[in-house]
Design a protein around this nucleic acid. Structure first.
Lengths: 213, 213
DNA sequence: TAGATTGTTAATCGATTAACAATC
DNA sequence: TAGATTGTTAATCGATTAACAATC
């Protein structure tokens, strides 16, 4: 087994569940409990843990506090994660001020846009010209960018980002950017997600003589 | 094989590629071509197509125009898809005016919020009180909602939506909503996606003595 | 001790691919 | 005809689960 996207996603889910357990006063937890919470088998939980060197005690399970600490370390959530937002349209601007980021120790260092009217280097989160990307990425050691530019320029701007040294892109442009060569791309296509939702509903209608879950 | 989420996602990708081919003047296409474009095997393309009753001609491949028309029908993109946005904070507001939706024939019928200051029934996309959800959902026959309320109330509002007759939820609240019982939930957790991106990068750093893709 | 839970090996399952007969 | 491509069946692959020895 290697660190696929799915395993990483599960690790994060374990962590969230564990934090809730901790707030309820739980001290230890069994693979069974976590398996139920995630809807997977206990064997998979143990396998994931053993792969990352998280060990428990036979009969006594895993210590909640230890697991959280170690998961935080593995997931790298100990340090503050710094990102830039490229494209300050509606969604870009919303993300620059998104509260969900603060909670997860994600900090937006700067926004970037082509529109001179939007540029404001003194704002709480400054907005700079696209030209300044290479300089800021280098001087601030930024590794990850959120890409919220229009579709038409997305590919080109992505290339600029990669050339500037960006290693991870969270892409909101409705285009399938490809990673590779040391660059990881995560595509979020909101319209597509909605379409798929409609489509799944349509199939559910057809198939169903009454399913449940 | 049944209509899993993955198959639906592939269908949408086929459609996108086909539209590009059409704009280049292509008339027919082989399973080989589409397979290359999506990074899967030709066999899978043919299997997907045959599952949905899309047939080609041996030796002559598939007709681009026909495939697009049939995919549009299967995916239900023929008609305009109508949704509501529940929670008009930063992200909700951005989505209410998101241009990517218009292109995909998705129309936001109404927003909803608890804050009286935000309510404006005469706006281009009206914003109404949460109380009006059941009425609007019924009178406008809405089946899908975008959920952009704060985490603390997300579960509760989701229940309201389901009680009102909503069958599909695109959830942006950082909580794992569960579907089932005829309701389909698609979770988009932006902070989580970013975290996973950082995490994947970290592993890439460790593993790598120089991979590529 | 008897009972319960971990860590790991072997079995299973589902999705994808290879291969090939049918046929244009 | 010979060659190429579909549609489908059998094989493969990877991820998940079942099962169990080790042991607390």
């Amino acid at each position: 087994m290697n660190a696929t996207k799915e395993v990483v996603v599960r690790l994060t889910k374990y962590k969230n569940v564990l934090e809730k357990l901790r707030s309820l006063g739980f001290v230890k937890v069994f693979s069974d409990n976590l398996a139920d919470a995630l809807g997977v088998s206990p064997a998979l939980v143990r396998k994931d843990f053993s792969f990352f060197g998280l060990s428990g005690k036979k009969r006594a399970g895993y210590r909640v506090e230890d697991l959280i600490a170690q998961l935080n370390h593995i997931l790298g959530v100990d340090e503050i994660q710094r990102v830039i937002v490229v494209g300050c349209g509606k969604i870009g601007t919303a993300l620059m001020r998104y509260r969900g980021f603060a909670r997860e120790k994600i900090r937006v260092v700067s926004g970037f846009d082509v529109d001179p009217a939007k540029i404001d280097a003194n704002a709480p989160v400054p907005i700079r010209d696209l030209n300044e990307i290479p300089y800021i990425v280098k001087s601030e050691s930024i590794r990850v960018a959120i890409l919220t530019v229009p579709e038409t320029v997305a590919t080109q701007v992505a290339e600029t980002l990669i050339a500037a040294g960006i290693k991870g892109i969270l892409n909101f442009a409705p285009i399938l950017l490809k990673g590779g060569n040391g660059v990881v791309v995560q595509n979020i296509n909101i319209a597509l997600e909605l379409e798929n939702l409609f489509c799944l509903l349509r199939f559910a209608d057809k198939d169903m003589g009454g399913e449940s879950a």
